[in-house]
Amino acid sequence: MTDVFLLAAEEAEGGGGIQFLLPEPAELYTGILAFLIVFLVMWKFAVPTMRKLMDERQAAISGQIEAANEAKAEADKLKADYEAQLAGAKGEANSIVDAARDDAETVRADLVAKAEEEAAKIREKAQADADAEMSRVLDEAKSEVAGLSVTIAEKVVGDSLDSDRQRALVEQYLNQLESE
């Protein structure tokens, strides 16, 4: 009976109870070793690498933002240049058009002047022709009238007059008339 009691007590003492709450030495050593390795890796490798990585990322992001700003400034500058060039081209085109318009104006004026001149010339010539014709017609008519007058006078007087003398007489008379 006593033996059984002791055995039961021993079993209770060895199996559960406080033994369960105390760290087992072998596991403690393994745990210490494993944790120290983890800590060394974190301390010497992981955390410094992470910090470096974060710094690099920060630098990269701020660098990218800077580069983007630079690119934008450059683009703005280019745009301004293009706009200035465009404005210049527009002005040039305007001046070219103006010059062309001026040229055309001069040419037109020349042409008009020439045409007017021509027309004046033609008119003058026509006038001259007409004058010449008139004087010729008048001369012809004069001589006709003289001839007719002589004939009429001959008919009236009846061949008494020398034809040539009479003609000269009549012509003299007519010239007198004309000059009066």
Partner: peptide, 26 residues
């Protein structure tokens, strides 16, 4: 088995950092 698992826990912690940072990229 406990010892094996303790070491495995440590290796997993190290492995996460090692493989996470082996080819580190931005």
């Amino acid at each position: 088995r406990t010892h094996f698992l303790i070491v495995l826990a440590a290796l997993l912690a190290i492995g996460l950092m090692y493989f996470g940072l082996r080819k580190r990229r931005l």
